[in-house]
Computed example of a mutant assay.
Amino acid sequence: MGDVGAGNWCLIESDPGVFSELIRGFGATGVQVEEIYSLDDESFTPLKPVLGLIFLFKIDKAAETKSEGALVQDSRLDEMFFAKQVIHNACATQAIINILLNVSNDGLDLGDNLKAFKDFTKSFDGQTAGLAISNQEQLRSVHNSFARHQVFEIEEQTQAKDEDLFHFVGYVPFNGRLYELDGLQEGPLDHGAVDNDKGDWLTLAREVLQKRIEKYASSEIRFNLMALITDRRAKYEKEIEELRQKTGGIEDNDETMIEMARLQSLLDAENSKLKQYKTDNVRRRHNYIPLIVNLLQVLAEQGKLDEFYETAKKRTEELKKAEMKLK
């Protein structure tokens, strides 16, 4: 079985449960990641305050699909954290770190490791900061804890030349401007002025994302957007406690009881979601290969392996034909 070796970084699934656990693994607390399915304002409102956005898209060489942000090359680089991606497959962690180290919010606690890393890289340029990430063992270890088990190690040079490559970038407001933090660029990309206090940076961010998605026209529909937000459980627990203190712990009217029930329901939903995230992440890490090998052996002994193989082969061909019709 191929394993992720020292110095190598695995591919990361675009999933809010994975990203939330990555952040906790890095030592940061007070935030979580939620998936966004639409760029409508209604999709963002329940999540506010949104601290940053993580966008996944397919990389291509077409000039028209590139970002329109202006490359930052002035003294703003001294105030922001930006790391270039110098590690293959590390763009997920790269996007998270680029966002976290530029967020200013009382709810976010970076933790000792990220605080020390931010101080250590304070005077680094993008290339050097990227190299610093590559040498940060805790970041690599947490990142690679999501490596999928493989029966064989597939060498990069044997992969198909036309294989689709996807990339994570971050969007974050900083000192009154919206920035795109893309580790494949030479520096942060400035998308314009925003009012951080009013939280209207999302309006501009949605416009930027919508415009970029539309550039792909009908050639690509595979995009993913996630939001870095404050910890919902902490928010609801605080509101429940404030309501109890306000009423002296006595829920003696319908309005108070309804509001308490609403907050408790939201808190229960978050706890349930977190529990499901943990279950899903355990399954992602589990090595199913011995089970699969044993299953194949049993099917072979029962003379059913060829039948299952032909059925799977036929189904795969049908799916390929259906996919070709959609293109």
Results as ranks from 00 to 15, higher is better:
Ala312Trp: 15
Gln302Leu: 13
Phe166Pro: 00
Phe120Ser: 15
Leu39Glu: 02
Lys48Thr: 15
Phe120Ala: 15
Glu163Trp: 10
Asp252Val: 13
Asp162Arg: 09
Val33Met: 01
Gln264Thr: 14
Ile133Phe: 15
Asn113Glu: 13
Pro16Val: 04
Met226Lys: 08
Asp3Arg: 06
Ser265Asn: 06
Gly130Phe: 03
Gln245Ala: 03
Glu242Phe: 04
Tyr37Leu: 10
His88Gly: 07
His167Gln: 09
Phe26Ala: 05
Leu178Thr: 01
Ile54Arg: 06
Asp106Phe: 02
Lys325Gln: 12
Asp268Met: 07
Lys246Arg: 13
Gly69Trp: 01
Asn271Glu: 13
Phe152Ile: 15
Leu267Asn: 03
Ala129Lys: 01
Ile96Lys: 05
Val103Met: 09
Leu225Met: 05
Thr121Val: 13
Asp162Gly: 02
Phe120Leu: 14
Thr128Phe: 08
Ile292Ser: 10
Lys278His: 03
Gln159Gly: 04
Gly25Val: 09
Leu131Trp: 01
Gly192Thr: 05
Ser75Pro: 01
Ile289Gly: 07
Ser75Met: 05
Thr279Cys: 01
Val31Ile: 13
Gly17Tyr: 12
Val208Tyr: 07
Lys84Ser: 06
Ile97Arg: 02
Phe146Asp: 10
Asp252Leu: 13
Glu301Arg: 12
Trp9Lys: 05
Asp164Ala: 15
Phe152Trp: 09
Ile97Gln: 00
Val4Asn: 11
Thr279Ala: 12
Glu220Pro: 00
Met260Ile: 12
Ala63Arg: 09
Lys278Gln: 14
Thr45Tyr: 00
Arg76Tyr: 03
Asn294Ile: 00
Trp9Ser: 04
Ala322His: 10
Leu56Ser: 07
Ala28Val: 10
Thr279Arg: 15
Asp40Pro: 01
Lys66Asp: 13
Arg284Asp: 04
Lys313Asn: 02
Ala205Trp: 03
Leu267His: 05
Asp306Pro: 01
Lys118Glu: 07
Ser134Thr: 02
Tyr216Asp: 08
Pro173Ile: 04
Ala70Arg: 11
Glu156Thr: 13
Lys61Phe: 13
Arg244Asp: 11
Tyr216His: 10
Ala95Cys: 13
Leu243Asn: 08
Leu209Lys: 00
Gly25His: 12
Asp74Cys: 02
Gly27Glu: 10
Arg177Asp: 04
Asn196Lys: 08
Phe44Arg: 01
Asp125Ile: 03
Ser219Lys: 12
His149Ser: 11
Ala234Asn: 13
Ser145Val: 01
Asp231Phe: 04
Arg232Met: 09
Leu184Gln: 13
Val282Met: 12
Phe174Val: 07
Pro49Asp: 12
Val4Glu: 10
Phe124Tyr: 14
Asn135Leu: 04
Lys118Val: 10
Glu307His: 09
Glu155Leu: 14
